[in-house]
Simulated assay, not measured.
Amino acid sequence: MFNNIKHQKETIDDFSIERTKRTEAYNMKSNHFHDGYEIYYMFKGERFYFIKDRTYHVRAGDLVLINMYDMHKTTEAYSPSHERLLINFRPDYIQTMTNGMEEKFYEIFQTFPVLRLNVREQGSLESILRKMIKEYEDKKEGYQTYLKLLLVEMLLYIYRHIKKNKIKPMEYHNSLHEKVSEIVRYINNHYMDLLTLHSLSKQFHISPYYLSRIYKKVTGFSFVEYLNQVRINEAQKLLKTTSLSVTSIAEKVGYENPTHFGRVFKKVTGISPLKYRKTFL
Rank of each mutant, 00 (worst) to 15 (best):
M1T: 10
M1H: 01
N3L: 15
N3W: 11
K6C: 03
K9G: 11
D13P: 00
D13H: 04
F15A: 11
F15C: 09
S16V: 00
E18L: 06
R19A: 02
K21W: 00
T23Q: 11
I39R: 07
Y40V: 00
M42T: 02
G45C: 08
R47S: 14
F50A: 04
K52Y: 12
T55K: 03
T55D: 01
V58T: 05
R59H: 05
L63M: 08
N67G: 12
N67C: 06
H72C: 01
K73C: 04
T75V: 14
A77V: 09
A77Q: 08
P80Y: 02
P80K: 03
S81K: 13
L86N: 13
R90Y: 13
R90D: 15
P91V: 07
M97K: 11
G100Y: 08
E102C: 03
E103Q: 14
I108S: 05
T111C: 07
L117K: 06
E121K: 07
E121R: 13
G123N: 15
I133Y: 15
K134D: 15
K140T: 09
E141S: 08
Q144P: 01
L147R: 05
L150H: 06
L155V: 06
I162V: 08
K166I: 00
N174T: 10
N174V: 10
N174H: 12
N188W: 00
N188E: 08
N188D: 03
H190D: 04
S201I: 09
K202C: 06
Q203E: 13
S207H: 11
Y209K: 13
Y210S: 13
Y210T: 13
Y210N: 13
Y215S: 10
K217E: 15
K217W: 02
N228A: 10
Q229L: 10
I232G: 09
S243G: 03
S245A: 09
V246G: 02
I249Y: 06
A250T: 09
V253E: 08
N257K: 15
N257M: 04
F261W: 12
G262A: 09
V264E: 05
T269N: 14
G270H: 03
I271C: 13
P273Y: 04
R277V: 03
